[in-house]
Design a protein around this nucleic acid. Structure first.
Lengths: 116, 116
DNA sequence: CTGTATCCACCTTGATACTG
DNA sequence: CAGTATCAAGGTGGATACAG
């Protein structure tokens, strides 16, 4: 009985935690952007090329969100024309294991659902 | 040079895999539902209580999606009134490590962004 | 190059009422 | 209990043009 109660608490707690994470990562593109930056510092135009399908507007918007949530740092380099680089914060780096898991599952998924 | 090339390929591959995963888990509620079912078989009304904020319509719709993607199994038990149970497929179970990572990060996030 | 502003079509979601 | 049907509202994202 106490065990069942405990299970239930753990369940609710997990759902809450996952919800909190998704609040920050919820956009259509954020996880892909984190995946891209997981491979190192990138320029705006590089991310644009990495993340197939995203528009410039969306990339700006998502990056701004992520900066506000302390996931990425933004550096403006005063070349001409301007260069801007983004990188994961140490905090954002902690998402890399999530990304790894997700990528592994995504590969499995492609093999399972779509034919190989 | 070959290393840089290799890095870039790995990056694109990861982003694609993550995108595939997100195609299936993309809804506002799907990850929370997986988290709930990760703790065992549940009835429709139990999930409804677990996942704070979801409406009945959305729960039905998301579950139907997930069933189509082989993430959950649906069992109708012929009581009166009807009982319906959902559970993760073995395939869906493979998402549990993703959920765990995400929950850990979500807890960290709450402590980091919101004050503890 | 790295954005911002505007306009707009579409989609997702919630509320409510209803069915077996 | 476990859904479905309908409607309305707001959010989401694309295209385009423009700016620093």
């Amino acid at each position: 009985m106490a065990e069942i109660k405990h299970e239930h608490e753990a369940c609710k707690k997990t759902i809450l935690a996952v919800h909190d994470a998704m609040d920050v990562l919820g956009g259509k593109w954020k996880i892909s952007i984190v995946a891209s930056l997981g491979f190192g510092k990138k320029r705006y135009s590089e991310i644009l090329k990495d993340v197939t399908g995203i528009s410039g507007k969306m990339l700006s918007r998502e990056l701004k969100d992520m900066e506000a949530n302390l996931l990425v740092n933004r550096y403006v380099i005063d070349t001409k024309p301007v260069t801007v680089e983004y990188e994961l914060t140490p905090y954002g780096h902690k998402l890399k294991s999530v990304i790894k898991n997700l990528a592994d599952w995504g590969n499995l998924h492609r093999k399972t659902i779509m034919g190989k």
